[in-house]
Amino acid sequence: MNNLKDFNLKVNLFGYELKNPVIPASGTFGFGYEFADVYDINCLGSISLKGTTLNERYGNPLPRVAECPVGMLNSIGLQNKGVDKVISEEIEKLKKVYDGKVIANVGGHSVDEYVEVVRRFNACDKVFAIELNISCPNVKGGGMAFGTNPSVAENLVKAVKAVSQKPIMVKLSPNVTSISEMAKAVEGAGADGISLINTLVGMRIDLATRKPILAVGSGGYSGRGVFPVALKMVNDVYKAVSVPVVGMGGITSAREAVEMMMAGATAVMVGTENLVNPYASQQIINDLPTVLDELNVKDINEIIGSVK
């Protein structure tokens, strides 16, 4: 293994320096501290916290996960304790085990809810950026409804930007006709960055009962199988906007992380693989120097958007 010190893995996101570009994705890493007894999570570039709403949410009825070939479906439905307890309890626990700053992922059912949650995170120093989740397929009357119509997304981003003291990164849904159009709309509304992709809407049916496996009928597909779809969309968005892009979708290895960065990602998020292999994010970070060495690259910033 190559020495991490011989390579520059640092990247800059909204003026905040990440020691490396690897960030566990929202919804696959709890509030971070859950992984602290698995490995020293201080190796992580940052962490995108579990989606947070104004009030406590239990989420959807069980079953809310299902196996797929090369991936999984989920319909969790934004289970969280509500923003106040997230700040006073969850982030306090995280502070004890993680030195870096993190990304708060904000969900909601209305413009007012998004705005209020973002406003309450203003006072939380541990959070250096907000990831605005307008792409969750698992909440009724919210989530993805904001992320599939450019003018609706635009209005939301403007409203949130008006109150936020932190950079706003908008997490886009792949369930749209033109991801570039969505990206341009949110950039035009003032978004400081864009992350993508959230999950692809999907379903599975139990043959014996002829009922969907997920209690709510359908959910979001993620994991290894979505990687080429995500890569193309990240590249499309990279070409369409000038704000930083954070790429995710099916990344399981350092090679795929590098590929995602070549497509245009300044940083990458690792999602479903954390649930399959709890050490995944750490292993990807440790393997990055080897991949960079093969490519004769000393500074990881050289590869961002370098696809020809």
Partner: peptide, 26 residues
Amino acid sequence: ARMACGFGACMGCSIMTTDGAKRVCK
């Protein structure tokens, strides 16, 4: 419950209790 991770990260197996939502796995 059907689980995805099995160690408390995904909230896939949460049930309701008198003390709020709890994860079957963790």
